[in-house]
């Protein structure tokens, strides 16, 4: 029973929740992107590639200009550019969105390594200095609140941004006219078109937004948590984000809850001293959880009705 006792003890420490929140935010950003894209009717399994691209260009820009904010902006734009490819191919050319998503992920994996060699030759890509990393930021006064202060107000700057974006996306999707339009386009594009909504623009916007968010996550990973670029450094996180999106039933708050569960698992494993399970076995858990959810034991999880169907005006 020492294992359970140890976990229970961990759960009462602020350190654990602080680490769990940071870990879950890394998944939350691409998951939010996935929610927005799929709510508009475009299947997006390419968060992995967009995140990887963001991570790479973030490091390149940071090393070149020694400015973390500029580098983060570059990472966001790079993620958005990859999303633009996905958008053009799957909206304009009406390609199969899964094929396009796979292609994006392969393209990102190949292109980043190809460019590492073109730019830096065979030598090491180099490390970003500690002063040029995304900083941790303590909110004055609030960070002194016992427990809560450490968990919520002594975090990396990206954590605050992500939590703000979480609320923003939730409100926009379900409380504003724009959100209604996005959801209408994803559920019934023909009806939305008839009502005067430009299906294409909504979808382009949603897909590109997913890339911007994934790019930011890439920056957080490469020049926040880490300080360099390693080939394939996202290591499936974009897919865990996809899992979180499904787990959360295509809602921002649901996805966040899923990310928090995954992040908590990661943090417990990293901080405990009594669990001697292989980290590799533990890494399977998010994926297995989603498979369990999909068996319908814990209620159905259905995508938007028009998710994955290219829109052809008048072809119903």
């Amino acid at each position: 029973m020492t294992v359970i006792g140890d976990i229970l003890r961990l759960l009462t420490t602020a350190d654990l929740w602080q680490a769990a929140l940071a870990a879950s935010v890394l998944l939350l950003l691409p998951a939010l992107g996935g929610v927005i894209s799929e709510r508009s009717g475009v299947v997006n399994i390419a968060m992995e590639g967009m995140m990887l691209t963001g991570a790479f260009f973030g490091v390149v820009a940071d090393l070149a200009w020694q400015n973390v904010w500029l580098a983060t902006l570059v990472a966001i734009v790079a993620g958005g550019a990859m999303a633009l490819i996905h958008a053009v191919v799957s909206i304009r050319f009406r390609a199969d969105q899964i094929v396009s998503g796979i292609a994006i992920n392969i393209f990102a994996a190949g292109m980043t390594v190809f460019l590492v060699r073109r730019i830096y030759g065979v030598q090491d890509i180099g490390h970003v200095g500690p002063s040029e990393l995304l900083p941790n930021l303590s909110i004055p006064v609030l960070d002194q609140i016992p427990f809560v202060g450490q968990v919520f107000f002594q975090q990396n700057v990206v954590v605050y941004i992500a939590l703000f974006l979480l609320v923003l996306v939730q409100v926009v999707l379900f409380r504003t006219r724009l959100g209604l339009r996005i959801r209408a386009v994803g559920e019934h594009p023909h009806a939305a078109d008839t009502a005067g909504i430009n299906v294409y623009w909504i979808r382009y916007g949603a897909v590109i937004t997913s890339g911007l968010l994934s790019g930011l996550a890439g920056a957080f990973l490469a020049i926040g948590i880490s300080n360099t670029f390693v080939p394939n450094m996202t290591d499936g996180r974009g897919y865990i984000a996809l899992a979180a999106m499904i787990f959360g039933k295509w809602t921002p708050l649901g996805a966040f809850l899923a990310c928090l569960i995954f992040g908590l698992g990661e943090a417990i494993y990293a901080n405990n001293s009594t669990i001697h399970v292989s980290q590799y076995l533990l890494s399977m858990l998010p994926y297995i959880l989603v498979l369990v959810v999909l068996t319908g034991v814990i209620g159905r999880s259905n995508p938007p009705a028009a998710d994955g169907i290219p829109y052809v005006p008048g072809a119903e």
Binding site: S90, F93, V99, I106, G110, R117
Partner: peptide, 26 residues
Amino acid sequence: AGISSSLVLVLQALILFSIGANFLSA
């Protein structure tokens, strides 16, 4: 040639894009 073998992945992705989107007919 000193070109990273990752170019192969790039080529593969481009083939997928092209097949999927059917650029030619478009």
